[in-house]
Design a protein around this nucleic acid. Sequence first.
DNA 1: CTGTTAGCGCCTTCAT
DNA 2: ATGAAGGCGCTAACAG
Lengths: 337, 337
Amino acid sequence: MATMLDVSLRAGVSKATVSRVLNGTGQVKESTRKAVFKAMEDLGYRPNFLARSLANRTSNSIGLVVSTFDGFYFGRLLQQASRQSEVHGKQLMVTDGHDTPECETQAVEMLADRHCDAIILYTRFMSEQAILSLTETLSKPLVVINRDVASARERCVFFEQQEAAFQAVDYLISRGHRDIACITVPIHTPTGKARLQGYRQALEKNGIAWDPARVKYGTAEMTSGYEMCQQLLQEGVGFSALFTCNDDMALGASKSLHQAGLRIPQDISLFGFDDAPCAKWLEPALSTVYLPIDTMITTAIDQAIKLASNQPLAPIPPFTGKLVLRDSVATGPYGAR
Amino acid sequence: MATMLDVSLRAGVSKATVSRVLNGTGQVKESTRKAVFKAMEDLGYRPNFLARSLANRTSNSIGLVVSTFDGFYFGRLLQQASRQSEVHGKQLMVTDGHDTPECETQAVEMLADRHCDAIILYTRFMSEQAILSLTETLSKPLVVINRDVASARERCVFFEQQEAAFQAVDYLISRGHRDIACITVPIHTPTGKARLQGYRQALEKNGIAWDPARVKYGTAEMTSGYEMCQQLLQEGVGFSALFTCNDDMALGASKSLHQAGLRIPQDISLFGFDDAPCAKWLEPALSTVYLPIDTMITTAIDQAIKLASNQPLAPIPPFTGKLVLRDSVATGPYGAR
DNA sequence: CTGTTAGCGCCTTCAT
DNA sequence: ATGAAGGCGCTAACAG
């Protein structure tokens, strides 16, 4: 591997000059400039990234840690993240947190050690407290997605989970349903809690009593949707609509419903969350809530880059979901209002 | 940020000693060892990764470039890749090739510049020739997934695409179908060609004439499955079974079938490819071919690590698919054999 | 056992 | 416009 020294010798100049033409800093006579380029060409020279970063104290890259690589959701996110960082001419380095808080922390630190200029953390688990203390010990600026840390609104990109869930369930009610079951995503996570809270809030607003028998605590997986729905059915819990806190579980639930001879939406209405890629192609097409994940990650990256370069920054307003109404909800027994 | 020098001063030793305790190389008296650890603790010292890699000429990491981040397929792959590299104590660095051959090359080179010890490339586009020349110019060992380069079988992890497609279609025929339509994945890719070839081969083997009207060239997306199937229907192409070269398009096609009032599998049998997460939950559950992606990436990583450490290595045998028979295929008009 | 001395490859004043 | 020299933080002989 040719080094800068090799190039300088071949071009008959000093390392400093080579460095100059490489970075376009300082004045260099056009002729020597060409000579240097030719030498680089001849030698197939490639600058050593590590050395450069070491000398510069910047690697021109931003780090991203996601909860897990699995699932369509993070694929979508990574896709857009990759694009947007390229827009800024920054390299994106991604790692996953193996879906545990400890690993999430480790992943962030590893990225920091690699001298990413800024780090973005999408967390499902980390507590507000943990985030705060991480921010302090960390030597690089941190942007957090999916958590609202009130004291650091300019570093938080989050989504109004509860409000979106509320709207979904409220919509179900407006369509004439009052006996609405719910299958949650992991309830120990803020997201899990918030979506359930939205469900609850909608019931309250409409004067419907909260019935613990109607809510099942799922794991977010398709299988879980299937199993929980089966329990609902076996236990004889009466319901005309089912709100699953993500689309994957909606899919599982629909299988279970089908096996029980129940039709969607004629017998049971179904509402999901996330707007998975398959949602619109299912039969019937699944009504769900769209989460502006592309916009969110784009915002996060822009903000991270500002942080890295000490630009002034404003608090980021919360993002909101949007109901995507398709064919999985029918008018309920109480009639649409 | 505390440096090694800071630590050495505080502990009253030299940098060399600090380095020794840090890496566990050489002999160090227990007492000074402790002193050093304490100093590190006090200062919150974190070794500088770049400096270390620079001095070592190894970053203890392996690089992975995937065609794109989007879709369940690469999520699955990344998930397992991340796990397996952790098993080896290596850090995984992933990048995407924006689904174009140029970007794939760039991504590989960028990873090499960052001194990954070895690089794994999952490519959809790159020609055998391009891969060969890349291997030559590249300063790091390269393992390629999804391409069979005959002259470098110890660096290729690939799947018998054609054979798997053949089996799928042959199965359809054995169930009594002879009028079988096909929607391909991008036909300019080796994968696209191979799967179509498998379809063709199965027809030939069973003495069924090849009918160009029955094959549609798709883009791999769900929408494409929908549109292509619609064309098939509108053009009045007769068929009792449809082989879509991936599950996403199967989903799209099923929508189109449903809208035309055709039932799966009673009216039309459907066969997919990839075994997407949703396949088993669809109604009816989709028959498809399972691709041992986890095993493949694991193998690739193991091999990459051997390459990086100059261990002896054997050629990697090709991987094969497995039909996953579910409920989307019924006995066809010619009767099962 | 531990310190000294050179690098690793590049960038950046400071002179010339 | 260009070169010399020192430094980024760490590792690796080579002496004691």
